[in-house]
Design a protein around this nucleic acid. Sequence first.
DNA 1: ATCTTATTTGAGTCATTGTTCAATCGTTCA
DNA 2: TGAACGATTGAACAATGACTCAAATAAGAT
Lengths: 125, 125
Amino acid sequence: MHTDSACEVRCLHPEAVQRATQALEAEPDLIGMASLFAAFGDPTRLRLLLALQIEPLCTCDLAVVLGVSESAVSHQLRTLKSLDLVESERRDRMMFHRLTSTITEALSAVARSHVVGSLTSAEAA
Amino acid sequence: MHTDSACEVRCLHPEAVQRATQALEAEPDLIGMASLFAAFGDPTRLRLLLALQIEPLCTCDLAVVLGVSESAVSHQLRTLKSLDLVESERRDRMMFHRLTSTITEALSAVARSHVVGSLTSAEAA
DNA sequence: ATCTTATTTGAGTCATTGTTCAATCGTTCA
DNA sequence: TGAACGATTGAACAATGACTCAAATAAGAT
C-alpha cells in the first residue's frame, strides 16, 4: 500500500515531512506525555497539585481549598493517581494525599517562567 | 459576605487549608499556566510542537505529518500562537511556522522523564 | 485583471470531560 | 453490632473543544 501517494494530497516538502514524521515515531510515550500535560491543563487539578506542594491534605480539606465538592476532588485524585502524580495514605479517619515526585515543581516552574515572559513582552507599555 | 463560614462545610485542618489557599493566591498566572499545559495536553498539538522542534514547516506539510486536514492545523496554530508558542512567516506561497522558544523542549523533557520513570516502575517484571 | 494556490475562517457536529447528586463502601468509635 | 464519618463510585448533565466541510481571504503566476 502507498500511504503518501494519494492523489489529492499535496506534500510540498517531502524530506522535511519525513524528518518530522520520523521524529514523532521516535517518541513512543507521546500519548503518556500528552496525558500528563492534560492533567496539568485543568485549573482545578493544577491548583490541587500546587496545593499539595505545600503539604499533604485530606480529601475534604482539598475540597475547601479548591471550592468544589469532595466528590469532585476524589474524581480528580483518581486521574492524578493513575498518572503516578499523587499517592494516598489513610491516617485517623481520613485519607491524606501527597505528591509522589517533584515533577509538579519542575513543570510548573517552566510554565511559570514562560507565562510571565509572555506577559511582560505583551505589556511592553 | 462570609466565604468560609458556611455551616455545612467541615474543614478539618483550618491551618493547612489556609496555607494551601494562600499558596494558590500567590500564583497569579495559574490560568495562564493551565492554558499552556492544556495546549501540550492534546496529542495532535503536542505532535505539532514536537514536529516543529525539528525544523519549520508549512501548513500543508504539518497536515500530512499529523494526518489531519489543513484546516485543523490552522485552527491549532491559532491556539498555539495565542500562547506565544509558535510564530509564522510567509515564504514563497506558503506560511512557515516555527517555535518561538525552547519551552517545548524544556517541558517535553520533564514530561518524558516522568513517563518513562512511571513505565519502568510499573513494569518491574 | 484573472486564475490558481495556500491558508484561514465560520458553522456545525460529535466526542470528551469536569461537575454535582445520590448511593455505596470502608473505618472508627460507641 | 450498629451508628457516624470520611471517602469513593456511578449516573446524568452541561460545557468545552477538536475535527470536517464549505466558503472566504491573500498572495503569486499567467
